[in-house]
């Protein structure tokens, strides 16, 4: 009896100590590493974010990937191929980071395929013309850079290290997309129109979906609960150092970056409210409300189902490759052909 009570008290002490140690680590801005003890809530939150991020990288290969065979020159094709390959690589960095939290990549892919986990809604739009590959890279990758730069200092070490690699590559993605649009904007009238049309199509996915819903509790009654919940998750995530800035802060940063780039390019951003605000030192723009956000998500629903179906089909069609690799690895060494 005494022993039992004693060990329960000791266990409670241990838990308290672990909690305090963890909180102190995060408060000091130190990285949390895989073999540290983690609170369940932290593990779930980091895992959910890394998994969603990884899924978005590989689903995000599809809109641009569909133009690989139709690139207008060998140079553009090589650049696009490298870009799409990078996205696959980003997915792999992130799946590896997620695996340090005690799941397997196969489990994560299953969760994506059966709908238990989702990818970003950003890529649930069709890439209708060649110019879309430029607009996607300039706008959504440009938004990703803003989102991801602070994640290089996120509190979970493997995630931060994956993001450092990702960020080194994103700059190339944005630049090649901008360069592609630059050429179109200096081409024929049809090419200029094609560039403008693609920018119109990808503006809202970049501004609304890449940064997520607004942080503020605004909009209709139906939105209040979701907004309050979202804001609470956001605060928790920031307290744990997973997330470093609010969605709206990052969105503003993106707008401030991209408006002068659009002027230089010669395209019109499809938001009449964009103008410089001397007082704030920022560009004003149409706020992304919950309603705007929901509309943008809904617009991609059908294309989103196609993206997922395509992903599942590719995975199933590749089953024989994985089986062959296993069979080859299982063969006795003597049966293998020397290179």
């Amino acid at each position: 009896m005494t022993t039992e009570a004693g060990s329960t008290a000791a266990a409670a002490d241990d838990v308290k100590q672990r909690d305090e140690y963890f909180d102190a680590l995060v408060a000091a801005g130190e990285c949390v590493e895989p073999r540290d003890w983690l609170p369940d809530g932290y593990r779930r939150m980091v895992l959910r974010q890394i998994a969603q991020h990884a899924h978005s990288e590989i689903i995000g290969m599809q809109p641009e990937g569909s133009w690989l065979t139709r690139a207008p020159s060998l140079h553009r094709k090589a650049a696009l191929l490298a870009k799409v390959q990078d996205e696959a690589g980003h997915g792999l960095y992130l799946y590896a980071a997620a695996e340090t939290l005690g799941v397997t990549r196969a489990e994560l892919l299953d969760a994506l395929h059966n709908g238990h986990q989702r990818s970003s809604d950003t890529f649930n739009q069709p890439a209708l013309t060649w110019a879309d590959t430029g607009a996607i890279a300039w706008l959504t990758d440009g938004a990703a850079v803003i989102n991801q730069a602070p994640l290089c200092r996120t509190s979970y070490g493997p995630y931060a290290r994956a993001m450092q690699r990702v960020c080194q590559e994103e700059t190339f993605h944005v630049r090649q997309g901008y360069d592609l649009l630059w050429s179109l904007c200096r081409g024929t009238r049809e090419q200029q129109e094609m560039a403008q049309d693609a920018v119109d199509r990808w503006w809202l996915p970049a501004v609304a979906l890449m940064f997520g819903p607004p942080d503020t509790v605004e909009g209709g009654d139906g939105d209040t609960r979701a907004a309050a919940l979202g804001a609470a998750v956001s605060r928790r995530s920031m307290a744990w150092g997973i997330k470093r800035h609010t969605n709206d802060e990052l969105r503003q940063r993106f707008i401030d970056n991209v408006v002068p780039q659009a002027e230089r390019l010669g395209v019109t951003l499809p938001d009449p409210a964009i103008r410089w605000n001397e007082e704030r030192g920022h560009y004003d723009f149409t706020p992304v409300t919950w309603q705007v956000y929901r509309t943008a998500v809904a617009a991609g629903a059908q294309c989103g189902r196609q993206r997922l179906a395509h992903r599942v089909a590719a995975h199933e069609a590749g089953a024989w490759v994985r089986a062959a690799a296993d069979a080859y690895a299982a063969r006795p060494v003597t049966e293998r052909q020397e290179p």
Binding site: E99, D326, A329
Partner: peptide, 8 residues
């Protein structure tokens, strides 16, 4: 358990 070429 490593299957499908999934040995890390």
């Amino acid at each position: 358990e490593a299957a499908g070429g999934q040995t890390p």
